[in-house]
């Protein structure tokens, strides 16, 4: 989707330009770079961060988002624009854990405080570039494990389960899958199939319907996000098995509220995305004020949300 990419570069550039003209006070400037704003998760996070900025009032927020999850080209441009504008802090959720290392290194060399959140930059790439950068974010693997454990506890050892994966190649999709697998192993569950539905409801519905046909004895489903869990639940309803096959997911978006309420969804994981960027900004501001450099992995909280009907 080269065209999309081009369009989003233009978008990013124009947003950055507009922001650049309003740089008159001496409050520290924070550049926030997110992934796709089409993703509810980031959309919500942006709102939370704006509230945070208004509440504190002691920094200026400039935020940009991409058009899709993997558009690191636009992110690189955004980093470069922020360097040019002389922002004090860059807070970034990298679209590519390797490609973003070099531009961020340039930012650090220019004296910008960089905070990496949501998805960790690749350790190898950091080492090769000589970058020492902390990661602020939840442990997706831990979170997925929480959901998986809840499922294991419900079903008991030996139960047959399937995983609905996120986009192949996406780090959080990978981490969540690993977390699900950890829980499956620990709980003695039996994994009989694992397929991607690209984070998408309709595709999850189709893919899971077909998995259910192939394996009518499925007892549990681990979906890597809530959108896909919705598709899975609808497939179960169509097949008349809504109560008897248990589903766990990740994200805790509003749309799964009713499903949690009546037990069609057993559990999901809230990673407090709304506060994640704001927390990172707080950390960055501390460093800017002369606090100690961030180190290693600053983990942010995760919470298992379990169905009321359990």
């Amino acid at each position: 989707m080269v065209f999309l990419k081009k369009a989003s570069i233009a978008l990013v550039a124009s947003v950055a330009l507009m922001a650049g003209s309003a740089m008159a006070n001496d409050k520290p400037v924070v550049g926030l770079i997110m992934k796709s704003l089409a993703n509810e998760f980031f959309r919500d996070m942006l709102e939370g961060t704006k509230e945070h900025a208004a509440r504190r009032g002691d920094y200026e927020l400039r935020a940009v988002g991409m058009q899709n999850e993997t558009d690191f080209q636009s992110q690189i441009n955004a980093v470069e624009n922020f360097i040019t504008q002389g922002v004090d802090i860059i807070v970034i959720a990298p679209a590519d854990s390797r490609a973003m290392v070099r531009p961020l290194k340039r930012a650090m060399e220019a004296g910008v405080v960089v905070v990496n959140f949501d998805v960790s930059l690749d350790a190898d790439a950091k080492k090769k570039q000589g970058v020492d950068l902390a990661f602020v974010g939840p442990d997706n693997r831990d979170g997925a494990r929480l959901a998986g454990d809840a499922l294991a506890k419900e079903l008991g050892a030996g139960a047959k389960v399937v995983i609905i994966e996120g986009n192949p190649g996406a780090d959080n999709a990978h981490e969540r899958k690993l977390g699900f697998e950890d829980a499956i192993k620990a709980g003695g569950l039996k994994l009989i199939d694992s397929r991607t539905a690209h984070w998408e409801t309709e595709e999850a519905n189709t893919v899971f319907s077909n998995m259910l046909t192939a394996h009518p004895d499925i007892q549990g489903v681990l979906a890597a996000n809530d959108s896909m869990a919705i598709g899975v639940v609808k497939a179960l309803e169509s097949a008349g098995r809504a109560g008897d096959i248990k589903v766990v997911a990740f994200d805790n978006i509003p749309a799964v509220g009713p499903m949690l309420a009546d037990g069609r969804l057993l559990a999901t994981v809230d990673q407090f995305g709304r506060d994640m960027a704001a927390n990172s900004i707080e950390l960055g501001l501390e460093v800017l004020k002369g606090g100690p450099q961030l180190e290693g992995w600053v983990k942010t909280p995760l919470k298992l949300v379990v169905s009321d009907k359990k």
Binding site: E200, T201, E202, G231
Partner: peptide
């Protein structure tokens, strides 16, 4: 049909 089948409307439907 999408809405009736899945009981939701998603802005990222149909990609």
């Amino acid at each position: 049909v999408y809405m009736a089948r899945l009981n939701i409307s998603s802005p990222i439907a149909g990609i």
